[in-house]
Structure formats: structure tokens, C-alpha cells
């Protein structure tokens, strides 16, 4: 199982959980598995063409997958996936 960290804006989809578990050998598989457990998650992360939205980052451990192999980045037991969207608040 892969541990996935869910950011605050997406927690309504995971019943408030900040950390969930999913199965998969790549980021794409883990997201697909998560979407089957928490429907709607995929649509928040991917655009119409199926690419990761440009204001949402996914990290495997500490690495941004856009600088690895994108959604096809391989995962192994013990890896931690974090979803980190841009946030703008400050005032």
C-alpha cells in the first residue's frame, strides 16, 4: 500500500482524512485506485486531456513528479505520495 497525503482543499472528498492508502505501482495507478474509493479526486487533479493540472503538484517522497516520469513515475512499497495544490491566502 502507498500512503497518500491529501491537502485541505481535497479533504471533503476523503471524508476529512489527511492521509489515505491506495494500491498501485505508479502514480497514475494510485490515483485511479484512490478515485475508485473516493470518486471525484481524479477530476480535481487532471484536466480534460488527462494531464495533471498546472497548479497542482504531486510529490513522490520529496520529488516533484513533473521532473520524474510524470504520472508514470513508478512507486514501491513505503513510498509516500503527496498532493500539493497552489494556495494563495495571505491577508
Amino acid at each position: 500500500m502507498i500512503k497518500v497525503r491529501i491537502p485541505t482543499p481535497l479533504r471533503p472528498l476523503t471524508r476529512g482524512q489527511g492521509e489515505v492508502e491506495a494500491k498501485g505501482a505508479s502514480v497514475a495507478e494510485v490515483i485511479a485506485n484512490l478515485d475508485s474509493i473516493h470518486p471525484g479526486l481524479k477530476q480535481r487533479l487532471y484536466d480534460e486531456t488527462g494531464e495533471l493540472r498546472r497548479f497542482v503538484n504531486i510529490y513522490v517522497n520529496e520529488e516533484d513528479i513533473r521532473f520524474l516520469k510524470g504520472k508514470e513515475t513508478a512507486l514501491k512499497e513505503g513510498d509516500e505520495v503527496s498532493i500539493v495544490p497552489a494556495i494563495a491566502g495571505g491577508r
Binding site: P9, R54, F55, N57, A86, I87, A88, G89
Partner: peptide, 28 residues
């Protein structure tokens, strides 16, 4: 930047060869 219970912090020195904010998030 802050939102609910989460905060993010980065130092941007793109003019010195480091990444800019768009390298992190290409578009709003």
C-alpha cells in the same frame, strides 16, 4: 501563503538561477 490549516513558504531567486514560482506552479 496560507489556507485553512496549511501553509507554504518558498524563497524565489530566479534571477540568480534558482527556480521561480512558475517553475513550481506553471499557471494559476
Amino acid at each position: 501563503s496560507i489556507f485553512r490549516f496549511e501553509g507554504q513558504l518558498a524563497t524565489i531567486k530566479a534571477h540568480e538561477g534558482y527556480p521561480c514560482y512558475r517553475c513550481l506552479y506553471p499557471e494559476p
